[in-house]
Write a protein that binds this DNA or RNA. Structure first.
Lengths: 342, 342
DNA sequence: ACTATCATTGTGAGCGCTCACAGAAGCGAG
DNA sequence: CTCGCTTCTGTGAGCGCTCACAATGATAGT
């Protein structure tokens, strides 16, 4: 199996072996028309025999494009972004692109610039940036990328840059309205870090939905997406004596901590307090009790992102769009009508 | 900010602007010695002014190496692999490598070959393959890669290929012995899919540890890593009438399903049945009750993988090693001495 | 028969960089 | 003052590929 020669196999080797010019081999590889099928077969055979693998560096150098997409990820520790990456990779592969990948520790202008500089050296055909955090970088991204098409994922709803987002406001509205519909009138919130677009949007929408229903917004605490953060936030909520029968929580992990905190105070879920999460992680269904939550379709987010990026690579001057994906409420057992007999 | 010229900036442009030859510019970029510091400053200035970004395709074509590592991931849906990717990226960046990334749907020979073919076209300097599933590919990987150094992550303990693994057997032993030490004598298991090295190793070790302690291995059921799988497995365990006081579970997600199943049968945790998970996902601490589990240090796995790969790139003919990372037991509240008064 | 057209193949140049080499200074030692 | 040495800079070639163009032979139209 290991016929090893020191030199790498090139187009020329294949050309020589199959008795044609290197250009013809190139044509075969790139599926150009105007190659006699008999010739094509001969070349294909030689390619296979020599185990020839085209050098993509040379190809992208000569062709001035690389069939490669770059992803700048942020928050890969969280379920959502990780999920997106998987589906971005899948969609990219299907569209014939390789994926080069960079994870930034924070969305500072400097970090972003560094990542993009590094990636754009690869002549990537397009860039997907996961930008869920509020930062001026989002608006400058286009100019930093200097001509390479960029799609933002999870940027603010209504932004003018090409992007794909989940309608966080609508998600929060679904959650809040669901509780209102159940009869709750005092509805608190434990939000994600307000530096995140999503957290910010959900927070505002929670408030707006309550006001629209003629209810006074309950207290709100800021968490950090982790279960521990949720636990601490609910403790802060509980300290002044909890005056609400339902809590809208920023994500499912925090909801886990919230449930713990509530139980430690002798409060039952959903009898005493109803809880709605956000994300619908696979485990949410198995929490105790199973968590009512707002499903974000991260897979769709990644997939649509790539599709839109590929579209823009084909037509970079088309007016920018923002693709919006609607979230969905998944009702389980952590929500119920308020128990008035308390 | 958009001073836009159509042509890309090259070494020559920088050379011209700073009044030196292109070679000198190249020397500055690559930190070669023997550049007068005055010259260096001038070049650096020009680079900055022109916003010059070296073309990595050209560089890797000329230099015959790319400063790029490839990751072939599998099972990115799971916490462990996703976690590894993050830390692989981090370590790669620190070592000065870019990362190109491919996720395979299954570890078939064909899929693996395809992925490697595609990646090796980039002249990657090294490959990291996450191969947690039993397959002949693992042993053939070296020959498929044709000279490019490969490190396997999560391959079988004791394999001869260069690799980094967690000592799964030891992990399972820790879990089982912990239960034995608590006084349990009838200890069941819900394993992961036995097609995975880890699941297989843990299964065998669970059995071995019990036998060594003079105990008869309780029943064992195979799960699929998901909470639902755990739930179903525990139902199968419960059907014949559960004859054990403790269960070693293949991962934390399944443990979640197992706890649900147990509770539905009126069994309390840990009073009636003790549970040990595996992985220590961040949420495990917040499960109800907090889960005793075996921590795998996925971060270390990824980091060590990259470090070892870089080392092998430097010295490809060094004898292969297998780096082993020890897991650790995290005791929480899902385990307790058996309750004899039942 | 003589061009017009098509399918098929080949040739030159160059993408932006690094390598190996060669030259031009500067400086103390014999 | 010539030699060897170190420090600095420049030149040629070529990495493996694609592009634009030209050239060939076959087929058809008039």
């Amino acid at each position: 199996m290991g016929a090893s020669s020191s030199r790498r196999i090139t187009l020329h080797d294949v050309a020589e072996r199959s008795g044609v010019s290197y250009q013809t081999v190139s044509r075969v590889i790139n599926d150009h028309p105007y190659v006699a099928s008999e010739t094509r077969d001969r070349v294909l055979k030689a390619i296979h025999e020599l185990d020839y693998r085209p050098n993509k560096a040379a190809k992208s150098l000569a062709a001035r494009r690389s069939q490669t997409l770059a992803v700048i990820a942020y928050g890969m520790d969280y379920y959502g972004p990780a999920q997106m990456i998987i589906h971005i990779e899948r969609a990219a592969k299907r569209a014939g692109y390789d994926l080069i990948f960079s994870n930034v520790a924070d969305i500072s202008r400097e970090n972003m610039r560094l990542a993009i500089n590094s990636l754009s050296g690869w002549q990537v055909d397009g860039i997907l940036a996961i930008t869920p955090v509020i930062s001026s970088v989002c608006e400058e991204l286009d100019s930093i990328c200097a001509g390479t098409p960029v799609i933002q994922i999870d940027n603010p709803l209504g932004a003018s840059e090409p992007s794909v987002v989940v309608d966080q406001s609508y998600g929060s509205e679904l959650a809040t309205q669901h509780l209102i519909d159940l009869g709750h009138t005092r509805i608190a919130e434990i939000s994600g870090p307000l530096g995140w677009h999503g957290a910010q949007a959900r927070h505002k929408s929670w408030r707006r939905t309550l006001v629209r229903a003629g209810l006074e917004p309950g207290p709100s605490q800021e968490g950090d997406w982790t279960a521990r953060g949720g636990y601490r936030a609910v403790q802060r909520l509980l300290q002044p004596g909890l005056d609400c029968t339902a809590i809208v929580v920023g994500n499912d992990q925090m909801a886990l901590g919230v449930m713990r905190g509530l139980r430690e105070h002798g409060l039952r879920i959903p009898e005493d307090v109803s809880i709605v999460g956000f994300d619908d992680v696979p485990e949410a269904e198995w929490y105790e009790p199973p968590l009512t939550t707002i499903r974000q379709d991260f897979a769709a987010l990644g997939k649509r992102g790539v599709e839109y990026l590929v579209e823009r690579i084909g037509d970079p001057d088309a007016p920018p769009r923002q693709h919006v994906i609607a979230p969905q409420i998944i009702q389980r057992l952590s929500t119920a009508p308020p128990c008035f007999g308390r």
